[in-house]
Nucleic acid binder design. Structure first.
Length: 1045
RNA sequence: GGGCGUAUAGCUCAGUCGGUUAGAGCGCGUCCCUGAUAAGGACGAGGCCCCAGGUUCAAGUCCUGGUACGCCCA
């Protein structure tokens, strides 16, 4: 045992964070990631796109989630032989970056930025992005996310911008990029529109008027004169620019008379608006109202060809009157409706939120302040039907708390509505995980697609590559080179950002007039949607066309659910607009990670979990396992130290200690994997665990191919438990004896298990690979991540054996329960036990021996052979009977319960079927159609579960008692050995001091005691001054001395 | 207001094709076992499988409607 072994015993304890750091360095030194890519470079391509994170702040624990999934599947596919290039990317542009810089500098909106200068501001934005990229890189490395960080794409690079321009030029050429009004929440003080995100954090309660206004019709309706439309609004100031009234085409409207007049309201709202006493004169559909003209309440601004009833599907009858006043400059839906009806967009409010000075009555008045003046005027005119106030949340500017105004400004749009059919077609051929997103959240979004408002009146973004001359000719530019041709200068060194790009002018190709760039930049989401080709500099950079052809579309992308309207959409939309094909085939859509208290992580709540400290506390593997395998990745999950500790203890440490166990014994014996018997000639337990590990391989592969990491994780965790707590535990003795088959079997299981676990937990598996697998096979790849994915050997999978061991373990479990009930400790041997198995099940003797050993029982025998009086019960097996008897199942079941069980069982056992009378006839039942249970009546300690029954004979003879005592003594000595920190192979001189009856028991089993404790001598004495104290039997104190030899 | 999702033990979650005694882990209590283990095992307490209808011989599971929570949108 002292000869050279290639194995060194692994420590049983391990500092996982320290292990992580060591492995990260080893990977770097040995260039393992690049070599893993090189290994499969010639394999079939499996393309993954990294969705670029916006580097506008420090990464949080939720960033780890998607990055785990972006790592696990590429690693899995790489092991399977696919070529999976992975390139990092950074989303550099956009409002979030600008806001972060504004905040750092204490700036307050656009005027401040203009004051400091766009050049300097954008330089700071660039600097901020690069700074935060560094933090993402640290996280990426720390968590073991393998992606090429050295050659990332950046959406702010000139080559990237060239590509984006090229694609926009194409979209423009297709007539799908044009300018139109857009209504957006706008802060009149800061002079800027706000993004949805900003609006969401700025809701404050406001008290607004709620007014019902009469709009007299200029023509009769359904034969009635002087009919008035009733509309409801909470923004009276928008009535100045009233352009139309919208009704729903399918809603029924009533013409009803009250003391106040004759009105039109939606039928469902009649009572709420006009009360119970209104007299119904007529009903008309919304469609019939269309085209009627009315007199508007304020004649303050010119609005030609308007003031007509139009149709709109968005009108509801939930509140108001079912007739909605339209002011297209101040409502997104109003704008859509009015444009569809070719109505003008008239805006009497200036950018500072005040009515234009030339407007009568409210000229120069702030829009909110105009409400009171206008309501008073309505009252004066007799048009105010009802006036109330109500409190509701209203969006305010998060910076300055000014109420926001929904406000129409000219904006550039991509006409995505013209390609909706193509988008839906592409969605149909996309595999979504989970599936419901496809026709749920995402499909719904496509069904309600609206044009993409592309432009932003901001600074730090890809400039919109459109130049407009004095005659309003638009020229779309596809690259800096092309721009250079028009200007006649070399622009290859131009930073294509504002403000430099704004200085470039050229002669309009149409008319020769001076063309200057439109001022806007584009939505940063377009940048990321252009990533599949822009990252390559396609089509400008040499070689980009070839690479693009082989990497488009991607097989796999993955982000969290919030990207349905973000990257998932922009990627598909840009791809479809430019190439008529979506950019991805399979998309995994993750739920959100929440703090342990179930709330969103936020600085405000103080429940932020920083990812790197979390990994330093539990190891990166634990966090990775949590993200990939805990709960359902599609639903939101709570992360915290609790679940991570559990993963470490139950999965990682159990796995680790199984590996440690192998090295412990492999290093103590002369063993090499090739010295074992072929698998089919090994003992049954070996064949069982090999069958399990190959079945596992097959099942895990299936789960992974369907993107089910949680399912794969459950299978892997179950196997880790089976391997450690059944195979190893039942095989201890053989390992101690250096059994070649046992060592080989465990080695083979660990080899496969390590490779199956590698994509999930790359650190600990690497360590096990280095310390356990490589020493056993000189030809093993240098890293587990250079190894191949295992494939299942169907010849080793054995469903019968799997079932037999399951039954044996059920017996052991029942036996332990019986032990517990009898209050007899397991160290106390018992003479015999009787068992009963489900019909048709037989166990090989070796498995029965295992059960006997596990339960410390001398002999197992069949329950039938006892001659004891056994109670037999027969129950219907509904699953089988239901299929056969359908509606009569219940009656057949009653007949079975009414029949004599003993007779049925005898028939089943002798002729394989039993007959019962049913409905006047006899029907035959097979063994699988009933469930038989037998229980001894008295005199035994019995336990019955999971279809098996075990009965213990609890008589303890003096011989059995002595043996039990001897085992207790062994137990005390083992504890003493451990307390003395003896090696498992150290020999000892043993001294035992105990009462005479205990000494007698030791004497009777001296060989056993010596063997078990590696004692080369055993001395029995009355008392001992120094030694380890323990108890045997019924709390009898003894003292033992162990001296190392 | 709309869309989507979720709802099972104190907590975190499984639950296959619908099958009649609904499981695991954690936590708590009492024990047991241990010559790898940060482990393992037994027992106990703890369940209106959110509610109401429906389909079915049979519903935690399928359908409809509601409630609560979450996300997205308005």
């Amino acid at each position: 045992m002292t000869q050279e072994s290639p194995f060194t015993a692994l420590p049983t304890r391990v500092d996982l964070a320290e292990l992580d750091r060591r492995i990260i360095e080893w990977w770097q030194v040995n260039d393992v990631f690049a070599r893993s890519l090189a290994r499969t470079a010639d394999g079939p391509a499996w393309v993954f796109y990294e969705g670029p994170p916006t580097a506008n702040g420090s990464p949080g624990t939720h960033h780890v989630e998607a990055r785990v999934f972006k790592d696990v599947f590429p690693r899995f596919k790489t092991m399977k032989g696919y070529s999976v290039p992975r390139r990092a990317g950074w989303d550099c542009h956009g409002l979030p970056v600008e806001l972060a810089v504004e905040k750092e500098l204490g700036l307050n909106g656009k005027p401040d930025i203009e004051k400091m200068g766009v050049a300097e501001f954008n330089a700071l934005c660039r600097e901020s992005v690069l700074r935060h990229v560094g933090e993402f890189e640290q996280l990426t490395e720390r968590m073991g996310y393998w992606i090429d960080l050295a050659h990332p794409y950046r959406t702010m690079s000139p080559e990237y911008i060239d590509s984006v321009w090229w694609s926009l030029q194409r979209i423009f050429a297709d007539g799908r990029l044009s300018e139109d009004y857009r209504v957006a929440p706008y802060c009149t003080r800061c002079g800027t529109t706000l993004s949805d995100h900003e609006v969401a954090q700025g809701y404050e309660n406001a008290t607004d008027p709620s007014v019902y206004v009469r709009f007299p019709l200029l023509e009769p309706l359904a034969g009635h004169e002087n009919v008035e439309l009733l509309i409801w609004t909470t923004t009276p100031w928008t009535l100045v620019s009233n352009t139309a009234v919208a009704v729903h085409p399918d809603v029924t409207y009533v013409v009803a008379r009250t003391e106040q007049g004759t009105f039109v309201v939606a039928e469902p709202l009649l009572a709420a608006v006009l009360g119970d006493k209104a007299q119904m004169l007529a009903t008309v559909s919304g469609a019939e109202l269309a085209g009627l003209h009315y007199r508007r309440p304020f004649d303050l601004v010119e609005i030609p060809d308007a003031h007509v009833v139009v149709l709109a599907d968005y009108v509801t009858t939930v509140d108001g009157t079912g007739l909605v006043h339209q002011a297209p400059a101040f409502g997104a839906e109003d704008l859509v409706v009015c444009r569809a009806n070719n109505l003008p967009v008239v805006n009497p409010v200036a950018l500072n939120g005040r009515f234009l000075d030339n407007v009568p009555l409210v000229g120069g008045v702030f829009f909110k302040d105009a409400d009171a003046i206008l309501v008073e005027d309505l009252r004066r005119q007799g048009l105010l039907f009802r006036y109330e106030t109500y409190e509701h949340p209203y969006p305010h500017c998060w910076r300055c708390h000014t109420p926001l105004m929904y406000y129409a400004q000219l904006s550039w749009y991509i006409r995505t509505t013209t390609v909706v059919d193509a988008l839906q077609r592409e969605n149909e051929r996309t595999n979504w995980y989970p599936e419901h997103v496809k026709h749920g959240r995402y499909g719904d979004w496509l069904d309600n697609n609206i044009d993409w408002a592309l432009s932003r009146t901001r600074y730090w973004g890809t400039p919109l590559p459109l130049w407009r001359c004095e005659s309003s000719h638009i020229t779309a530019i596809g690259s800096r080179a092309e721009l250079g041709l028009l200007t006649g200068t070399d622009l290859s060194d131009l930073d294509p950002h504002r403000p430099y790009i704004d200085e470039i002018t050229f002669a309009c190709p149409d008319c020769g007039g001076t063309a200057t760039r439109v001022p806007e930049v584009i939505d940063a989401w377009y940048d990321s949607g252009a990533m599949p080709f822009a990252a390559l500099g396609y089509p400008h950079l040499p070689g980009s066309e070839e690479v693009f052809a082989s990497t488009y579309p991607a097989q796999y992308i993955c982000e969290a659910i919030d990207q349905t309207r973000g990257w998932f959409y922009t990627l598909m939309a840009v791809g479809t607009l430019v190439f008529d094909r979506s950019a991805y085939e399979n998309v995994v859509c993750l739920g959100h990670i929440m703090a342990e208290d179930g709330r969103k992580m936020s600085k405000h709540l103080g429940n932020i979990l920083a990812p790197i400290p979390l990994m330093d506390a539990h190891g990166a593997d634990a966090l990775r396992w949590f993200m990939a395998c805990s709960g359902s990745p599609w639903s939101q999950r709570l992360v915290g130290p609790g679940p991570l500790n559990e993963i470490v203890r139950k999965i990682l440490m159990t796995y680790w200690n199984t590996a440690s166990f192998l090295t412990l014994y492999a290093s103590h014996t002369q063993w090499a994997p090739e010295t074992a018997n072929a698998a089919e000639h090994r003992p049954i337990l070996d064949r069982w665990v090999l069958a399990e590990v190959h079945a596992l391989t097959r099942a895990v592969d299936e789960k992974m191919e369907s993107y089910d990491t949680a399912g794969a994780g459950r299978l892997l965790a179950d196997f880790v438990d089976d391997l450690s707590n059944w195979y190893v535990r039942r095989s201890r003795q053989r390992f101690w004896e250096g059994d070649q088959d046992a060592l080989s079997t465990l080695y083979e299981c660990l080899d496969i298990l390590t490779r199956l676990l590698a994509p999930f937990v790359p650190f600990i598996t690497e360590e096990v690979w280095q310390q356990v697998i490589r020493p056993g096979h000189s030809s093993a790849p240098e890293s587990v991540h250079l190894a191949t994915w295992p494939h299942a050997d169907p010849g080793l999978i054995d469903a019968v054996l799997t079932e037999q061991v399951r039954t044996a373990r059920a017996l052991a479990e029942a036996g332990r329960a019986a032990r517990k009930n009898s209050n007899i400790r397991i160290r106390q041997p018992l003479g015999r036990a009787f068992i009963s198995l489900p019909a048709g099940t037989e166990l090989p003797q070796t498995l029965l021996d295992d059960v006997a050993d596990e339960l410390n029982v001398k002999r197992l025998a069949s329950l039938d052979s006892t001659g004891a009086i056994v109670d037999i019960s027969v129950k219907p097996n509904f699953r089988i009977l239901g299929k056969r008897f359908g509606k009569q199942t219940q009656q057949v079941a009653n007949s079975i319960l009414a029949a004599d069980p003993r007779e049925m069982v005898e028939q089943l056992r002798s002729v394989g079927e039993t007959k019962i009378s049913f409905d006047g006839a006899e029907i035959a039942l097979g063994p699988d159609e009933v469930v038989v249970t037998e229980l001894p009546r008295t005199g035994w300690v019995v336990e019955s579960q999971r279809g098996v029954t075990i009965a213990l004979d609890t008589e303890i003879t003096p011989e059995l008692a002595a043996e039990g005592t001897a085992r207790d003594v062994v137990r005390v000595v083992q504890q003493a050995r451990r307390d003395t920190n003896l090696d498992v192979a150290d020999r000892i001189a043993l001294t035992v001091a105990a009462p005479e009856n205990v000494l007698a028991a030791v004497r009777a089993h001296q060989g056993f005691v010596a063997h078990e404790t590696l004692a080369t001598s055993v001395t029995l004495v009355d008392s001992l001054d120094e030694g380890f104290v323990g108890t045997v039997g019924e709390a009898v104190p003894i003292t033992v001395g162990v001296a190392k030899r």
